[in-house]
C-alpha cells in the first residue's frame, strides 16, 4: 500500500493522463470554435459515437487507419452540419437540437453497426494505431515515457491546441468567429456572413469531434461499442466552459479530467480503498465553480445560444 506511490506509478499515471485527455481535448478544441460563434452544440456525444462507428467501419473494410480517421472526420462534419442546419437555419432551440442529435447519433451508430456486422461472439477488431516513440526524446527517463511514447493523434491533439489558439486569437477568421458570437448584428453590418461563419464554426467542431470519435475506436481501442464515448462529448462541453473558450486552457481542463480517470482506473485495478467516485466527481464540481466565476465576469459569448435573424431587432 505504501510502496505503490513509486516513480513508476507516477510515470504511468501521467502517461495515461495524457492519453485519456486526448479525445476530450480534441472534441473541446472543436467545440471552442462552435461556442465562440454563439452555438452550443450539445450533440457532440452523438457525433462522436457516429464517428467512432464510421471510423471503425472504414478502417475495418479498407484496412487503412488513415481512411478510418478520414471517415470519422467526414461523418463528424455531416452530423454537425445537421446541427448547424437546425440551430442556424431553422433557428431551433440548441439544447433540444443537441439532445436530438445525441439520441440520433447513438441510435444510428448502433443500428448501422448491427446491420453491418450482425451479432458476433467475438467483436470485430482492427489493428489499432500503434504508438510512435519520438526519436531521442522518448528515451529521456520518466519524461520520455510520459510525453513521448504515444500514438500520433495524441501529439496532434496537443499541437492543435496551440494552432487553434493562434487561429482564434491572431487570424481574421478567428476574429470573425468571435465577432459573430459576441455581436452578430454588428458583424453582419460589417459584411461578415453570420450564417456562413456559424456553419463553418459548427462544422469545424464536428471535424474535431469526428477525429476524436475515430480516435476512440481505432486508436484508443480497437473495436466499436455504442457506449464507448461514455459521456466524453458532454465532458468536452464542460471543458470548454471550464477553459473559458481558450484552447490552451482547454488543455489544462482536459488533463484535469484525464488525471481523474487515470487515477480512478489505477486505484480500482490495484484495489486501493480510496473512494474513487469522489475523484471522478471532482472535475464536474470544478466545472460548476468555474462556470460561476465566468458567468459573473460575463465572459460568455454574448450571443450564446441565440439564433440570429436580420428581421428581428
Amino acid at each position: 500500500m505504501d510502496n505503490i506511490f513509486t516513480a513508476t506509478f507516477f510515470v504511468s499515471i501521467f502517461a495515461s493522463t495524457i492519453r485519456l485527455a486526448t479525445p476530450i481535448l480534441l472534441t473541446a478544441l472543436g467545440e471552442i470554435y462552435t461556442q465562440r460563434s454563439g452555438i452550443l452544440n450539445l450533440g457532440l456525444e452523438g457525433t462522436m459515437t457516429m464517428s467512432a462507428m464510421a471510423g471503425f467501419v472504414c478502417a475495418y473494410f479498407s484496412k487503412s487507419l488513415f481512411i478510418g480517421f478520414l471517415g470519422g472526420i467526414v461523418i463528424g462534419m455531416i452530423c454537425s452540419a445537421f446541427m448547424a442546419f437546425l440551430s442556424v437555419t431553422i433557428r431551433a432551440n440548441q439544447v433540444i437540437a443537441g439532445t436530438a442529435l445525441t439520441i440520433l447519433g447513438i441510435g444510428f451508430s448502433s443500428f448501422i453497426y448491427r446491420i453491418i456486422f450482425g451479432i458476433q461472439k467475438l467483436p470485430p477488431q482492427v489493428e489499432s494505431l500503434t504508438k510512435f516513440d519520438v526519436p531521442l526524446l522518448s528515451r529521456i527517463p520518466y519524461i520520455g515515457t510520459i510525453f513521448f511514447q504515444h500514438n500520433l493523434i495524441v501529439y496532434l491533439a496537443y499541437i492543435l491546441a496551440i494552432i487553434n489558439w493562434v487561429v482564434l486569437e491572431k487570424t481574421t477568421f478567428g476574429l470573425n468567429v468571435k465577432a459573430v458570437g459576441e455581436h452578430p448584428r454588428a458583424a453582419d453590418s460589417k459584411g461578415i456572413s453570420v450564417t456562413k461563419i456559424r456553419y463553418t464554426a459548427v462544422i469545424i467542431g464536428g471535424a474535431f469531434a469526428g477525429l476524436s470519435g475515430a480516435f476512440m475506436s481505432i486508436a484508443y481501442m480497437n473495436s466499436f461499442s455504442d457506449t464507448m464515448i461514455a459521456g466524453r462529448g458532454f465532458i468536452a462541453v464542460a471543458v470548454v466552459v471550464f477553459a473559458r473558450w481558450n484552447p490552451l486552457r482547454a488543455m489544462a481542463g482536459s488533463l484535469l479530467f484525464g488525471i481523474a480517470s487515470a487515477l480512478q482506473i489505477r486505484f480500482q485495478a490495484i484495489g486501493v480503498p480510496i473512494p474513487n467516485q469522489f475523484l471522478l466527481m471532482l472535475p464536474y464540481l470544478v466545472t460548476i465553480i468555474a462556470l460561476i466565476t465566468v458567468s459573473k465576469k460575463a465572459e460568455f459569448p454574448s450571443a450564446y445560444t441565440k439564433p440570429y435573424s436580420r428581421m428581428e431587432r
Binding site: L42, V237, A238, V241, T287, L291, A298
Partner: peptide
C-alpha cells in the same frame, strides 16, 4: 447567471 444546461448536466 450560471447556465443551467451545464450545471444540471454536471
Amino acid at each position: 447567471n450560471a447556465n443551467e444546461v451545464i450545471t444540471t448536466l454536471m
